[in-house]
Computed example of a mutant assay.
Amino acid sequence: MNKYSIAEFIKNTEQEDKGEGFFELETPRMLEVNLNGQVWAKAGSMVAYNGAIKFEREGILENGLGGLFKMALTGEGASLMKANGDGKLYLADAGKKVIILHLQSEAIYVNGNDLLAFEPSIKHDIKLMRRVAGMMAGGLFNIRCEGTGMIAITTHYEPLTLRVTPGKPIVTDPNATVAWSGNLQPNFQTDISLKTFVGRGSGESIQMRFEGDGFVIVQPYEEVYMQTNN
Protein backbone atom coordinates (compact mmCIF):
# COMPACT_ATOMS: atom_id res chain seq x y z
CA MET A 1 0.00 0.00 0.00
CA ASN A 2 1.38 3.38 -1.03
CA LYS A 3 1.72 6.02 1.66
CA TYR A 4 1.95 9.68 0.76
CA SER A 5 2.24 12.94 2.57
CA ILE A 6 -0.53 15.31 1.55
CA ALA A 7 1.95 17.31 -0.53
CA GLU A 8 3.19 14.16 -2.29
CA PHE A 9 -0.33 12.95 -2.96
CA ILE A 10 -1.33 16.30 -4.49
CA LYS A 11 1.79 16.33 -6.66
CA ASN A 12 1.13 12.78 -7.92
CA THR A 13 -2.57 13.21 -8.63
CA GLU A 14 -3.19 16.86 -9.45
CA GLN A 15 -4.69 18.01 -12.73
CA GLU A 16 -2.11 18.67 -15.43
CA ASP A 17 -2.61 20.55 -18.68
CA LYS A 18 -1.29 18.32 -21.43
CA GLY A 19 -2.13 20.67 -24.31
CA GLU A 20 -3.88 17.92 -26.25
CA GLY A 21 -6.89 20.02 -27.26
CA PHE A 22 -10.64 19.77 -26.75
CA PHE A 23 -10.54 16.26 -25.23
CA GLU A 24 -7.70 15.14 -22.95
CA LEU A 25 -7.25 11.98 -20.93
CA GLU A 26 -6.52 13.40 -17.50
CA THR A 27 -6.18 9.81 -16.28
CA PRO A 28 -7.00 6.55 -18.10
CA ARG A 29 -10.51 6.74 -16.55
CA MET A 30 -11.14 10.49 -16.49
CA LEU A 31 -11.86 12.71 -19.50
CA GLU A 32 -11.04 16.43 -19.40
CA VAL A 33 -13.02 18.62 -21.78
CA ASN A 34 -11.48 22.02 -22.48
CA LEU A 35 -14.83 23.62 -23.10
CA ASN A 36 -15.37 26.82 -25.03
CA GLY A 37 -18.85 26.37 -26.41
CA GLN A 38 -20.80 23.12 -26.26
CA VAL A 39 -20.24 19.40 -25.76
CA TRP A 40 -22.59 16.41 -25.59
CA ALA A 41 -22.04 14.03 -22.68
CA LYS A 42 -23.67 11.09 -20.96
CA ALA A 43 -26.08 12.35 -18.32
CA GLY A 44 -24.65 11.91 -14.85
CA SER A 45 -21.05 11.66 -16.06
CA MET A 46 -19.89 15.03 -14.67
CA VAL A 47 -17.59 14.63 -11.69
CA ALA A 48 -16.18 18.17 -11.51
CA TYR A 49 -15.76 21.41 -13.46
CA ASN A 50 -14.45 24.93 -13.21
CA GLY A 51 -15.53 28.06 -15.02
CA ALA A 52 -19.03 29.03 -16.15
CA ILE A 53 -20.74 25.86 -17.42
CA LYS A 54 -24.45 25.09 -17.58
CA PHE A 55 -25.99 21.65 -18.08
CA GLU A 56 -29.26 20.60 -19.68
CA ARG A 57 -30.73 17.28 -20.73
CA GLU A 58 -31.26 16.52 -24.40
CA GLY A 59 -34.48 18.25 -25.41
CA ILE A 60 -37.50 16.02 -25.84
CA LEU A 61 -37.77 17.09 -29.49
CA GLU A 62 -34.04 17.52 -30.07
CA ASN A 63 -34.05 14.93 -32.82
CA GLY A 64 -37.61 15.47 -34.05
CA LEU A 65 -40.61 13.20 -33.67
CA GLY A 66 -38.52 10.14 -34.59
CA GLY A 67 -36.23 10.89 -31.66
CA LEU A 68 -39.24 11.33 -29.38
CA PHE A 69 -40.52 7.90 -30.41
CA LYS A 70 -37.15 6.26 -29.78
CA MET A 71 -36.83 7.92 -26.38
CA ALA A 72 -40.23 6.62 -25.34
CA LEU A 73 -39.47 3.17 -26.70
CA THR A 74 -36.03 2.74 -25.15
CA GLY A 75 -36.58 4.66 -21.93
CA GLU A 76 -32.94 5.69 -22.38
CA GLY A 77 -33.09 8.49 -24.94
CA ALA A 78 -32.82 11.22 -22.30
CA SER A 79 -29.47 9.88 -21.07
CA LEU A 80 -27.54 12.56 -23.00
CA MET A 81 -26.93 16.07 -21.73
CA LYS A 82 -25.46 19.25 -23.18
CA ALA A 83 -22.81 21.25 -21.38
CA ASN A 84 -22.47 24.86 -22.49
CA GLY A 85 -19.93 27.42 -21.38
CA ASP A 86 -16.27 28.11 -20.86
CA GLY A 87 -14.10 26.09 -18.50
CA LYS A 88 -12.74 22.65 -17.77
CA LEU A 89 -15.19 19.76 -17.45
CA TYR A 90 -14.27 16.36 -16.02
CA LEU A 91 -16.28 13.31 -17.07
CA ALA A 92 -16.18 9.67 -15.96
CA ASP A 93 -18.47 6.65 -15.95
CA ALA A 94 -18.25 4.07 -13.16
CA GLY A 95 -14.47 3.91 -13.38
CA LYS A 96 -14.52 2.58 -16.94
CA LYS A 97 -11.53 3.09 -19.24
CA VAL A 98 -11.90 6.12 -21.53
CA ILE A 99 -10.87 6.02 -25.19
CA ILE A 100 -10.78 9.09 -27.46
CA LEU A 101 -11.50 8.56 -31.15
CA HIS A 102 -11.12 11.21 -33.86
CA LEU A 103 -13.65 10.66 -36.64
CA GLN A 104 -12.75 12.06 -40.05
CA SER A 105 -15.94 12.04 -42.15
CA GLU A 106 -16.59 8.59 -40.69
CA ALA A 107 -19.37 6.82 -38.83
CA ILE A 108 -19.33 4.47 -35.85
CA TYR A 109 -22.04 2.78 -33.82
CA VAL A 110 -21.52 2.90 -30.06
CA ASN A 111 -23.54 1.01 -27.47
CA GLY A 112 -25.71 3.61 -25.76
CA ASN A 113 -24.22 2.83 -22.37
CA ASP A 114 -20.64 3.22 -23.61
CA LEU A 115 -20.75 6.68 -25.22
CA LEU A 116 -19.26 9.23 -22.81
CA ALA A 117 -19.01 12.45 -24.85
CA PHE A 118 -18.75 13.88 -28.36
CA GLU A 119 -18.21 17.20 -30.08
CA PRO A 120 -21.24 19.12 -31.42
CA SER A 121 -19.88 18.67 -34.95
CA ILE A 122 -20.74 14.98 -34.67
CA LYS A 123 -24.27 14.07 -35.79
CA HIS A 124 -25.91 11.49 -33.51
CA ASP A 125 -28.94 9.26 -33.94
CA ILE A 126 -30.37 6.77 -31.44
CA LYS A 127 -31.01 3.31 -32.91
CA LEU A 128 -33.07 0.72 -31.09
CA MET A 129 -32.19 -2.93 -31.70
CA ARG A 130 -35.81 -3.99 -31.99
CA ARG A 131 -35.10 -7.66 -32.65
CA VAL A 132 -33.27 -8.02 -29.38
CA ALA A 133 -35.51 -5.74 -27.31
CA GLY A 134 -37.92 -8.50 -26.37
CA MET A 135 -35.13 -10.92 -25.47
CA MET A 136 -33.10 -8.79 -23.06
CA ALA A 137 -34.19 -6.80 -20.03
CA GLY A 138 -34.68 -3.21 -21.12
CA GLY A 139 -33.72 -4.00 -24.70
CA LEU A 140 -30.53 -2.67 -26.23
CA PHE A 141 -29.89 0.53 -28.14
CA ASN A 142 -26.95 2.15 -29.81
CA ILE A 143 -26.03 5.62 -31.01
CA ARG A 144 -24.73 6.24 -34.51
CA CYS A 145 -22.07 8.97 -34.50
CA GLU A 146 -21.09 10.46 -37.84
CA GLY A 147 -18.99 13.34 -39.09
CA THR A 148 -15.65 14.93 -38.26
CA GLY A 149 -14.67 15.48 -34.66
CA MET A 150 -13.84 13.68 -31.43
CA ILE A 151 -15.89 11.19 -29.46
CA ALA A 152 -15.05 9.49 -26.17
CA ILE A 153 -16.19 5.94 -25.48
CA THR A 154 -15.81 3.81 -22.36
CA THR A 155 -15.00 0.16 -21.76
CA HIS A 156 -14.72 -2.10 -18.76
CA TYR A 157 -10.99 -2.92 -18.71
CA GLU A 158 -8.97 -3.11 -21.94
CA PRO A 159 -10.94 -3.39 -25.20
CA LEU A 160 -10.22 -5.76 -28.08
CA THR A 161 -10.87 -4.76 -31.69
CA LEU A 162 -11.75 -7.58 -34.06
CA ARG A 163 -11.54 -7.14 -37.84
CA VAL A 164 -14.55 -8.25 -39.86
CA THR A 165 -13.64 -9.37 -43.38
CA PRO A 166 -15.77 -10.79 -46.22
CA GLY A 167 -16.44 -14.47 -45.63
CA LYS A 168 -15.17 -14.30 -42.05
CA PRO A 169 -18.00 -13.01 -39.83
CA ILE A 170 -17.51 -12.14 -36.18
CA VAL A 171 -20.06 -13.26 -33.58
CA THR A 172 -20.24 -11.44 -30.23
CA ASP A 173 -22.18 -11.37 -27.00
CA PRO A 174 -24.38 -8.20 -27.05
CA ASN A 175 -23.49 -7.50 -23.41
CA ALA A 176 -19.78 -7.38 -24.24
CA THR A 177 -20.09 -5.42 -27.50
CA VAL A 178 -19.00 -1.78 -27.24
CA ALA A 179 -18.90 -0.37 -30.79
CA TRP A 180 -18.62 -1.24 -34.47
CA SER A 181 -17.90 0.48 -37.78
CA GLY A 182 -20.70 2.50 -39.32
CA ASN A 183 -20.95 0.38 -42.46
CA LEU A 184 -21.85 -2.81 -40.56
CA GLN A 185 -25.38 -3.87 -39.63
CA PRO A 186 -25.38 -6.76 -37.15
CA ASN A 187 -27.90 -9.57 -37.29
CA PHE A 188 -29.14 -11.27 -34.16
CA GLN A 189 -29.15 -15.01 -33.81
CA THR A 190 -29.99 -17.49 -31.08
CA ASP A 191 -27.68 -20.40 -30.42
CA ILE A 192 -30.02 -23.22 -29.46
CA SER A 193 -27.27 -25.52 -28.19
CA LEU A 194 -25.74 -22.78 -26.05
CA LYS A 195 -29.17 -21.80 -24.79
CA THR A 196 -29.79 -25.37 -23.73
CA PHE A 197 -26.39 -25.55 -22.06
CA VAL A 198 -26.54 -22.35 -20.03
CA GLY A 199 -30.25 -22.35 -19.30
CA ARG A 200 -33.36 -20.97 -20.92
CA GLY A 201 -33.46 -17.20 -21.12
CA SER A 202 -29.74 -16.67 -20.67
CA GLY A 203 -28.40 -13.57 -22.40
CA GLU A 204 -25.50 -15.59 -23.81
CA SER A 205 -27.88 -17.51 -26.07
CA ILE A 206 -28.42 -14.27 -28.04
CA GLN A 207 -25.56 -13.34 -30.33
CA MET A 208 -24.66 -10.46 -32.66
CA ARG A 209 -23.32 -11.53 -36.05
CA PHE A 210 -21.25 -9.04 -38.04
CA GLU A 211 -20.58 -9.68 -41.74
CA GLY A 212 -18.83 -7.54 -44.33
CA ASP A 213 -15.74 -5.36 -44.06
CA GLY A 214 -15.13 -3.41 -40.86
CA PHE A 215 -14.42 -3.85 -37.17
CA VAL A 216 -16.14 -4.53 -33.87
CA ILE A 217 -14.91 -3.52 -30.40
CA VAL A 218 -15.57 -5.83 -27.46
CA GLN A 219 -14.75 -5.66 -23.75
CA PRO A 220 -13.85 -8.45 -21.30
CA TYR A 221 -17.02 -7.83 -19.33
CA GLU A 222 -20.70 -8.60 -19.82
CA GLU A 223 -22.68 -5.50 -18.96
CA VAL A 224 -26.29 -5.81 -17.82
CA TYR A 225 -28.58 -3.14 -19.24
CA MET A 226 -31.48 -2.01 -17.12
CA GLN A 227 -34.26 0.11 -18.52
CA THR A 228 -34.79 3.41 -16.78
CA ASN A 229 -37.77 5.69 -16.85
CA ASN A 230 -36.36 9.20 -16.96
Rank of each mutant, 00 (worst) to 15 (best):
L73Q: 12
T196Q: 14
N34D: 05
A117N: 02
E20D: 07
K42G: 05
L65K: 10
I153G: 02
K123S: 15
L61P: 01
T154C: 13
E62V: 00
T196S: 15
G75A: 14
G64K: 04
D93A: 03
N113I: 06
A94F: 12
L68R: 01
I143K: 05
L116P: 05
G87M: 06
A176G: 11
I60C: 12
L116Q: 06
T196A: 15
A72M: 12
G199V: 09
G134Y: 06
L91I: 00
E26D: 09
L103D: 01
E24Y: 03
N142W: 02
L162W: 00
P120C: 10
Y4A: 03
G75E: 12
I153P: 00
G112P: 02
D114H: 15
V98G: 02
S79C: 03
V198M: 12
N84V: 05
I151R: 01
N111P: 02
V178C: 04
V224G: 09
V47M: 09
M129H: 15
E146P: 01
G75K: 10
N111L: 02
C145I: 09
P28D: 11
I153D: 02
E16Y: 08
H156I: 01
Q207E: 07
C145V: 11
E146R: 01
S105V: 01
F55N: 02
I60E: 15
D93N: 09
A152D: 02
S105H: 05
Q207Y: 08
C145K: 05
F22E: 03
G75Y: 14
G203K: 05
A179E: 03
S205R: 10
D125E: 15
T165M: 13
E204T: 11
